[in-house]
Design a protein around this nucleic acid. Structure first.
Length: 312
DNA sequence: CCGCGTCAAGTTCAT
DNA sequence: ATGAACTTGACGCGG
């Protein structure tokens, strides 16, 4: 099992991402940010490899306004060398990367323009992974979208619009249950129509349980069946509710007791587990260290010092 | 230079 | 009908 984290690396110099607001998005400024962010991404990848973290979600914010008309930069050509260099590190380091288009990416919208923008957004993410040279086991994770007062119809819209996507995007797309609208049961039904693999998110599942009552283990096994030959290992998302915060918000850190309880119940340990947690790499190290074998002790000690300094 | 309000996009829910 | 939450911390402006 690889355990990974999303988008940002805590406490490591040179890994901070830059951005700007729309009215400052000049070509010069955008280029400055893109270069800085690609170097930051490289630093995050270096860190992950050094610390035996083999699962990582790349932030959507590396290229600012990537699917917005204000950004006309041919970044996939102009920064190709940098992409190739980073991609090589990712492959040699055997890191599995993914991306997760944001909440605005809604391909089942009743508004055609929204769908159009969502497709542009998917194209951006897919291109990013392609330019890095990542194979289709490096996934794009997407929620189903809105309900619009008629879930059955909204699910059909998703299936129809999914079918219209380029094959290269379809080959990467993975769908996930969310905390408000679509339960794991419904996402699995959509998977049946589209063939898209399903990511099981434990907290979303807890907060938004399906009508059909069955154990988490059984849902995990059903999701496992949706992962085909070229899709790589089954992936799941794991997070804990932040105490005292609104329902579905992520905890600051992963507490080992509930994590181990979850881990021990997993029907198949040969899967990849993405943590969604505020302390990012620190929890990834903690969870990797308690489940994995063969992590060098000096790496463990160094990271524990870092962890104590920042979190405890 | 410090601190606090702001930030592309969509949807749902609360008021 | 309008606004906040979702989730997020860096930016950017005003003091």
């Amino acid at each position: 099992m690889s355990i990974g984290y999303a988008c940002l690396t805590i406490g490591v110099p040179g890994t901070n991402l830059s951005r700007c607001i729309l009215r400052n998005a000049t070509e010069i400024n955008l280029r400055k940010i893109i270069t800085a962010n690609l170097l930051a991404l490289e630093a995050m990848i270096d860190y992950n490899i050094e610390n035996h973290i083999r699962l990582f979600r790349i932030s959507s914010d590396i290229i600012p306004f990537a699917s917005h008309p204000v950004n006309n930069i041919l970044w996939w050509e102009d920064y190709k060398d940098l992409f190739l260099r980073i991609g090589k590190k990712i492959r040699n380091g055997r890191v599995r990367v993914s991306m997760h288009p944001g909440q605005y990416t809604v391909i089942n919208s009743s508004d055609e323009k929204v769908v159009c923008n969502a497709i542009r957004e998917l194209e951006y993410h897919n291109r990013f992974l392609e330019v890095l040279g990542m194979d289709p086991s490096c996934k794009l994770i997407l929620h189903i979208g809105g309900v619009y007062g008629n879930k059955q119809k909204a699910m059909e819209t998703f299936v129809n619009n999914y079918a219209k996507l380029d094959k290269s995007i379809r080959d990467r797309l993975v769908i996930e249950n969310d905390d408000k609208n679509y339960t794991i049961e419904e996402v699995l039904a959509i998977s049946k129509e589209t063939g898209a693999p399903v990511v099981f998110d434990n907290l979303h599942h807890e907060v938004n349980p399906p009508e059909k009552i069955q154990t988490e283990t059984m849902w995990l096994q059903e999701c496992a069946k949706t992962w085909g030959e070229g899709d790589g290992k089954q992936k799941i998302h794991y997070s804990l509710q932040k105490e005292g915060a609104s329902v579905g918000s992520h905890s600051n850190t992963i507490y080992l007791s509930p994590f181990l309880k979850f881990y021990n119940k997993l029907p198949n340990k040969n899967i990849d587990l993405m943590l969604e947690v505020k302390d990012k790499n620190l929890s990834a190290l903690k969870c990797n260290n308690i489940t994995a074998k063969g992590v060098p002790i000096e790496s463990l000690n160094r990271e524990w010092d870092r962890y104590k300094l920042l979190v405890l």
